[in-house]
Structure formats: C-alpha cells, structure tokens
C-alpha cells in the first residue's frame, strides 16, 4: 500500500495551480517532486495534508482518506519556515511534538538525539528568534520528524542552507528512509533528486510532465550523451544520423544522440580514423530531461 494521488486538481478562481496529477508513492520510498517556482509543489502538499480542499480528484494513504485522525503518522516541513519566535527551542518542540501525541520524556530524549545529530546541542534552551535562519530550519525539521512518522513531507528542505548543513540534513533524511519512512520532498535542485530519490515527478505549471522510477524514466527518455575525446577531426558527425546536438571543445566533443544504437554506428565510423582516448555513453541527466520536457512545452 502507498500514497496515491488520482486526478488531483486545484483551481483558485480561474487559475489552475495543480492540473490532473496522478502519482503513486510506494511505501518506504524516497519520492522527489521536481519543479520550478509556481509548479504546484506546495499546493499539492497542502492538499495532501488536508490544508486545502482539492477542486477534483482523490488522495488516499493506505486506501483511506487523509484526515486529522492520521496526522500523528505524518511529518510535515512547510516551505514557509516559521516557529514561535519567543519560545525556547525545547518549549517549541515540546508543544509541536505533543500535538503529535508524544509524551514529555520521550520528546526530551528524541530532541537531545536530533540536536546532537544536527550538531546544535547548545541551542536547546535558546529562544528561537536568537537562532540563525539555518539553525531555525534544523529545529523545524526536528519538529517535523521527532515523532518518527511513517510519511514525511518536506517542502524544499534544503533551500537556504550552506553546503555543510545540506549534507547533514541529507544524511538524516537518508537515515529516516532507511528506517522505513516514506519520504516525499520537493525541490528545484536536480542534483538532490538524483542523489536521494528512486522515484520522482516533474511538475511544470501545475502539470505532471513525467513521473515514476528514475532509472525507468532515464531509460524511456532514450536520448543519450556521448563523449568522445581524441585528436582527430570528427566534426563531420554533426550530419550523422541520430545526432541531435554536438558541442566541440578542443579535443573533447559532447554529442546528444536520439538512441543508444546510434552510438554503435558512430563508434565504427570513428575507429577508422585511429586512436581515441575516450568513448563514453552516459545516461541523460535529470537536467537534460527537465529541459527537454519542459523547455519544449514552453515553445
């Protein structure tokens, strides 16, 4: 069983923020929502949590509709960060964790663990408003995962953090996933999705551009990237069948080909010229897929 979104649509007056999304998030997976600004990621999450009522469509978790009876199993980090500025970190976490049905001692124990994990144990008694933005974000992430939820929804969890902290948070997210939590997160950073997710959904202007297992998506996408390095002139390949695009930089050429089979033809053609230092076929990057799918739709 899993989280299923079917025909999910949300309209604000005449504006369609989310348009007919159909996805299935398998239990225990790490699912990435990829999209630029205004793609509909936050709106989708808010509908998931019941904060917004969908115009059409259904959302089910384990076959049941998500309601306030199951919020203890869900952890949510909103995109718009915010905590009670006047409260101390421990007071804030106590309050938010109790709302998730936790007991005082347990909260205290977990809080110590996570503060240690995020390398900020000294902040326990500090007021939220005294913390830096990054540290506030860590505290908020703790608030959303402290009750060991089954389903964790993180809206842009890494935005606004320095690279060191991004790594700390990524590590924690991976750990949570290894322990069995289903994690759904949104980002506009392709590299994060590539690194963390098995499954993803690319959104553009509320529409679902592509979704599913990353490897399948890459395989289905067809296009490959071919890198050739050598001293011979291979500019004639521009006109070769199956070549979509070619960039040359001194001895190195990066060629986009429509399918992997064209690589073989190219290989046979260039070995006739002699020695080449490198001949490599790469899987397409998400960036390529995103630009190909979204870029084309823009035009």
């Amino acid at each position: 069983m899993s989280l299923v979104l079917s025909n999910l649509t949300k309209q604000f007056n005449d504006f369609t923020a989310v348009d007919d999304i159909n996805i299935e998030v398998p239990r225990g997976s790490m699912y990435g929502f990829l999209g630029g600004n205004g793609a509909g990621k936050t709106t989708t999450f808010r509908m998931l949590l019941g904060l917004l009522v969908p115009t059409a469509g259904d959302i089910t978790y384990d076959g049941a509709k998500i309601g306030y009876d199951m919020t203890d199993k869900i952890g949510y980090l909103p995109e718009e960060r915010g905590l009670h500025p006047k409260l101390q970190v421990d007071e804030q976490i106590q309050y938010l964790a109790r709302l998730k049905g936790m007991k005082k001692q347990e909260i205290d124990r977990q809080l110590d663990f996570w503060l240690e994990e995020f390398e900020v144990p000294e902040n326990k008694q500090k007021r939220i408003e005294k913390l830096s933005k990054g540290n506030q974000q860590k505290i908020q992430l703790i608030a959303s995962i402290i009750h060991e939820p089954e389903l964790i929804i993180l809206d842009e969890p890494f935005s606004g953090l320095d690279p060191v902290n991004v790594e700390i948070l990524k590590k924690a997210v991976k750990e949570l996933n290894r322990n069995g939590a289903t994690i759904l997160f949104s980002t506009h950073r392709m590299d994060h999705v590539e690194e963390l997710c098995e499954e993803l959904c690319i959104l553009n202007k509320g529409r679902q551009v592509v979704s599913g297992n990353i490897d399948d998506i890459k395989a289905d996408f067809g296009q490959k990237e071919l890198i050739i390095e050598g001293k011979h002139d291979i500019s004639f390949l521009k006109e070769f069948p199956g070549v979509l695009e070619m960039k040359q930089n001194r001895n190195k050429s990066v060629i986009k080909i429509a399918e992997e089979k064209y690589a073989e033809d190219i290989f046979h053609e260039i070995v006739k010229l002699g020695y080449f230092k490198r001949f490599q076929v790469n899987e397409p990057s998400l960036n390529d897929i995103f630009i190909a799918k979204v870029g084309r739709q823009y035009e």
Binding site: L49, L51, T71, I74, Y76, L83, L96, L99
Partner: peptide
C-alpha cells in the same frame, strides 16, 4: 508556524 500546527 501555523502551517506546522494545522498539519497536526
């Protein structure tokens, strides 16, 4: 902070 609260 309300968004976190009303998710619970």
């Amino acid at each position: 902070v309300i968004e976190m609260i009303v998710s619970s």
